[in-house]
Design a protein around this nucleic acid. Sequence first.
DNA 1: TCCAGCG
Length: 497
Amino acid sequence: MADAGGKKEPEKKSWADLEEEEEAKAKAEAAAESSSSKTEPAVEEQAKQIEALSLAAPEEEGGAEGPPLLDDSDDSQIQAVTSGGTVYESASTFEDLKLSPELLKGLHDEMGFSRPSKIQAITLPMILTPPYKDLVAQAHNGSGKTTCFVLGMLSRVNPNLKIPQAICICPTRELAQQNKAVLMRMGKFTGITCACAIPPAQKDYVPISRMPPITDQVVIGTSGTLIKWITHKKLPTREIKLLVFDEADHMLAEDGFRTDSERIMRDIQKSAGGCQVLLFSATFNEKVKDFVTKVIRDGNQIFVKKEELTLEKVKQYKVQIPDETAKIEVIRDKIFEFGQKVGQVIIFVKTRQSTKNVHNALMREDYVCSTIQGSLDQSEREKIIQEFKDGYTKVLISTDVLARGFDQAQVNLVINYDMPIKYGTRDEPDYEVYLHRIGRAGRFGRKGAVFNLLCGETDNVVMRKIEDYFQHKVPEVRNWKSEEDFETALKDAGLLE
DNA sequence: TCCAGCG
């Protein structure tokens, strides 16, 4: 599945076969520990590091102490493995990437980007340099992953060809729409068009047979609709040269979208003979990473240590709450009072039903907030997102439908009304979901705060495990009834005065 | 006991 653009065509393996293959001896050809100022990339240093990373060739395969890391004073560590003999030079400017003038204009004038962020500087040359190798890239929440693959899609498709050439698969409709919006802005001057493959609102429904074939160069969507379009020959895949998985760990997880993802891979494999695959996420747990590195064996890899993954600018807190009704009280008296003053708030709950329960409890108190979850009609989902993005609503109650990728700069407060638990377990945290949820605050290095509402011993067990996993002690708000305690916490987080 | 994703 690698090497769509390469001349050599090694063993043709289907995506599905790879899963069953025995342990890949992933040879760490190089690795680097590189600097990270999350907002300002130390690009010159990266240039050297990328070079070193392609030259160094340790023989052992991630042995006892793992691949060697380059020396760096900064606190963040990124581990990169390059494949084959390609030497990549980190891009200190967008101009270095030989992008079209139209695309550069979009980046500078429309997006207001002056230079690549760190993850962009490293991955963009890997994405854009032939032979086009697969890439799995992990980077912090809010670090600019979307730009990486959107830029990749925009620069690899031919605007004069009226047929899909790049597909991006997302776990939720909101994310697909958001990514499309970014692509349209960035590609404003390129003439490239994009279709969003998500189910229509009730009122817009037309039978698939009456739908015209897609002629846009890029298609971004959710797995079900993409499969439907492909199956009904409305989305030709023979010219697809780039396949992007956003939130890739979830798209490839067994209890996520793996089956759908494999299906789409196979369809493209059959008609286009494979293509370049890009996998992006802030999280890759060991199990998924293991699967992914077997699949993307011949590609480039960038991973971040889990201890380095929590955002420093986002302060996490835990609050002991005596019972469920007290949770409502906390939200009413503390979160509403302070929260909406400092910005926007997302309250995460476990089930669709609990979004309604929490909403009703707060409605009775005459507080305005809105609710989103997957069983709402598409038009309702869009309306609620729009109102929130416009800043019309300040507080949004949500299931994990918004846990990943949702990008709203004004969100600087996240409430875990329910702690994220792995499905089928009682007290096993879903570490990835936790990290994604808190990443909704503090977009692009902004300040933010998270309150974990803990009720009972199980919640505390879960919280402790999360602290251990990320090696990060979460301070406690002493008294849930104390206005001062919350005020202090928000001040410490830099959100108040 | 899910959360997403498919009429």
